[in-house]
Amino acid sequence: MAMTGNNSGVRNFKIVLLGEGCVGKTSLVLRYVDDKFNNNHISTVQAAFLNKKLNIDGKRVNLAIWDTAGQEQFHALGPIYYRSSNGAILVYDITDQDSFQKVKSWVKELRKMLGADICLIIAGNKIDLEKDRNVTLEDAEEYACKVGAIHCQTSAKQNIGVEDMFMSLTTKMLDISDEKENQKSSPLSRQNSQRRNVIVVDDEITPPSKSCCGS
């Protein structure tokens, strides 16, 4: 849990999954982290929050993947969940046009609240049901391109494109984070840290400064 400025160089990225209920958000996470799939709409609590540690060419990355409650009743709580995320995966079901519209409204909301800092993935899930497709690939790709998101096609059921999707998101987040790191003079700052913690370098102790608390 090296959040503080020690040298282990782990990067913590927070990823949220958003989208209408039943599009397969939970299934995608479970497939990615545990390589499991469940045909019933059932998921364990663990799936609400999963950690995945990656080591990409020597860069250590810690993905915190947050699955959200899809229920409309809780929609207003969205900002509490997605604030300070580095990436968002907006999932729609290719057989359901409405779910694609919902993705569009999420994109608007996220861009408004978090600006350009967040990496967006738009994922068309359930491509194993190609015959029932209701959202054309061209439409989706065009839209994704327009809003600066990466478009992916996945099937949690048949394990198509899931790992690639998380990989491309991670790579993009790494790029952004590298960029930020280069801009900043201090190698210690973390683009995604919510607060600057007390930094201890051997004996020297800097107390927290007044302006440090983000939230």
């Binding site: 609400a48 929050f49 915190a64 969940y81």
Partner: peptide
């Protein structure tokens, strides 16, 4: 001030929600 668990952010956030 110390980094007591980044993992728990989700739990805390859920309570906050």
């Amino acid at each position: 001030f110390s980094s007591i668990s980044y993992n728990n952010d989700f739990v805390i956030t859920s309570f906050e929600a």
